[in-house]
Design a protein around this nucleic acid. Sequence first.
DNA 1: GCAATTCCGGACATCTATTGTCCAGGTTGT
DNA 2: ACAACCTGGACAATAGATGTCCGGAATTGC
Lengths: 156, 156
Amino acid sequence: MNEGVEWAVHSCLNLAWIGERTVPTARLAAFYELPAAYLNKQLQALARADVLASVSGPRGGFRLARPPEKITLMDVVAAIDGDEPAFRCTEIRQRGSASDPATYSKPCAIDAAMRKAELAWRRELAGQTVADVMATVERSNPGVPDKVRRWFDDTR
Amino acid sequence: MNEGVEWAVHSCLNLAWIGERTVPTARLAAFYELPAAYLNKQLQALARADVLASVSGPRGGFRLARPPEKITLMDVVAAIDGDEPAFRCTEIRQRGSASDPATYSKPCAIDAAMRKAELAWRRELAGQTVADVMATVERSNPGVPDKVRRWFDDTR
DNA sequence: GCAATTCCGGACATCTATTGTCCAGGTTGT
DNA sequence: ACAACCTGGACAATAGATGTCCGGAATTGC
């Protein structure tokens, strides 16, 4: 999986803690010392997927497009990593002299088994929201939200 | 995910239908017109993982190391693709001036959420055996097992 | 013992996807 | 008008996946 997913989720948490205000890419990148131009690509992808809203111009930047309870990890992963399955059946069963045209019309059982597993994965991701992850962080590290807010205020 | 996984599972099915007999890489590759040397790498990995047993020398080759009911898709995927998680937390939360050493000792909530989803995926894969997939194929294509056996007999 | 067959694993080449940079253009606040 | 900021495309660098080749060891049949 794309490393940008990690950047994206962390950035979503930060944006959620910050609130309404828009934050430019450079600020979000500086927080974790990430390459700004590349992080920007991930944020653009999130904006295209309507996870983030973007605002051009001075005082512009990104903010969450909806409340964190309405953003699932699946939304973020799909935006960054695409929604193609990890296992893609290339139908090798159709290759070779032993292959039988009648067989191709039936679905590939291996593909079906893999898709079933991936579906379980997607369901888990879709079942966890950004708000859930925020709550987990706040439980083990109650100081984090304030710390984040202050850092982004100070360096505004 | 590695394309070799598809080759590996198909080959396991074929070996299961063939039975006790060992089959050399070249035969298994010819069945799907796959590059033999590269398929051999996947089979080696399966042998290291004790999914297949290998026999050197003339009349040698590969066969299943255990009955297909005892080989899960997770076994095969882990052998070929490795058991590193798709999402790997690089701890970017530790980077940047705002990071707090006290936070690092607590597990990363994002990592935990991702691992939870991957666990569901692994559980699904571990719940499906090669025998299960064989049964699915045989239900929609009853002729396949015999066809496979004959092809490997004829070209022996 | 010898030759043929086959697995084993490392070295290497090639191709593709990921990661990262840069720039020219558009939008917006002051 | 100017500066801050996003957008998207082009491009380079790197890493990983894919594929080939070869020397060595094990095993079989003669």
